[in-house]
Amino acid sequence: MPPRTLLQADDVRRAIVRMAHELVETAPDAARLLVLGIPTRGAVLARRLAAAMSDVVGAPVAVGTLDVTLYRDDLGSQPTRPTGRTDVPADVDGAVVVLVDDVLFSGRTVRAALDALTALGRPAIVRLAVLVDRGHRELPIRPDSVGRNLPSAKTERIRVQLTEIDGTDAVTIE
């Protein structure tokens, strides 16, 4: 079957704006917000989300990248993966961290991210924002802000495309 488009560029843009509002409203201290994206597409989404959040807050929101490769629990099941850069521009201790990824699936990447975050410091709060929640969780992890819930079969492939990497904004399923 050819891939079916589930979200168009406009849907992605609106989702990010809505998520930005949600995340700012529920943050106890907007000045301590620290948005951290998980490479590769989570990092791009984090930058967009942080920009949208700063519009809501009316002040810059710190944004960075958190690579979780070295904390994964599935390293031994495939060839060695390249690592990615971690770039955290603000103090993690006491921060209101928003973890950002493109698709939430098993929850294992988020588990690794929580471990990676713990090595950097002790945040006041950690929230999870994802563009797509496709279900099939294997760990007790749930998102705080979701762009779109897309229940899917486990065998289906959900693909998030973002202009900065893929030249277009879209979410497709096949």
Binding site: D67, L70, P82, T83, R85, A119, L120
Partner: peptide
């Protein structure tokens, strides 16, 4: 270059509060 780039990421982890990785 790929190996040196991984070493860059490893060096960064050694600046963290917790330097030990579970890898």
């Amino acid at each position: 270059v790929a190996l040196l780039d991984i070493a860059e990421d490893m060096a960064d982890t050694q600046q963290r509060q917790v330097k030990k990785l579970p890898t």
